[in-house]
Simulated assay, not measured.
Amino acid sequence: MFERLDLSELSVEQVAPLEALFESSWSDTWRELAISHYITLLSAPGSETVPKGQLARLAVELTMGIAQDLGGTQPYIPAGAAVMTSARTRRVIELLQRGRSYREVGTTVGLTPSRVRNIERAWRQEQLSLSQGRLDL
Rank of each mutant, 00 (worst) to 15 (best):
G80Y: 05
G80K: 14
A81H: 14
A81V: 09
A82V: 08
A82Y: 12
A82H: 12
V83R: 11
M84A: 11
M84S: 12
S86E: 12
S86T: 02
A87P: 00
A87Q: 15
A87W: 12
A87D: 09
A87F: 00
A87V: 12
R88M: 03
R88F: 03
T89H: 15
T89G: 11
T89N: 15
T89Y: 15
T89L: 07
T89D: 14
R90F: 03
R90A: 04
R90P: 04
R90E: 07
R91N: 07
R91D: 13
V92K: 01
V92P: 00
V92F: 00
I93S: 07
I93E: 10
E94Q: 13
L95F: 05
L95D: 02
L95E: 08
L95C: 11
L96D: 07
L96Q: 01
L96H: 06
L96M: 13
L96K: 05
Q97G: 13
Q97N: 15
Q97T: 01
R98V: 05
R98Y: 08
R98L: 14
R98K: 12
G99Y: 01
G99Q: 08
G99I: 01
R100F: 13
R100N: 07
R100T: 05
R100K: 14
R100D: 08
R100A: 14
S101K: 05
Y102K: 02
Y102Q: 09
Y102S: 04
R103Q: 03
R103E: 15
R103F: 08
R103H: 11
R103Y: 09
V105M: 11
V105T: 08
V105W: 11
V105Y: 06
G106V: 00
G106W: 00
G106F: 02
T107A: 05
T107H: 06
T107K: 13
T107C: 02
T107L: 08
T107M: 05
T108Q: 13
T108R: 08
V109Y: 13
V109M: 09
V109H: 10
V109E: 15
G110T: 02
G110R: 03
L111S: 04
L111R: 02
L111G: 01
L111C: 10
L111V: 04
T112Q: 09
T112K: 04
T112G: 07
T112H: 10
T112C: 13
T112I: 02
P113D: 15
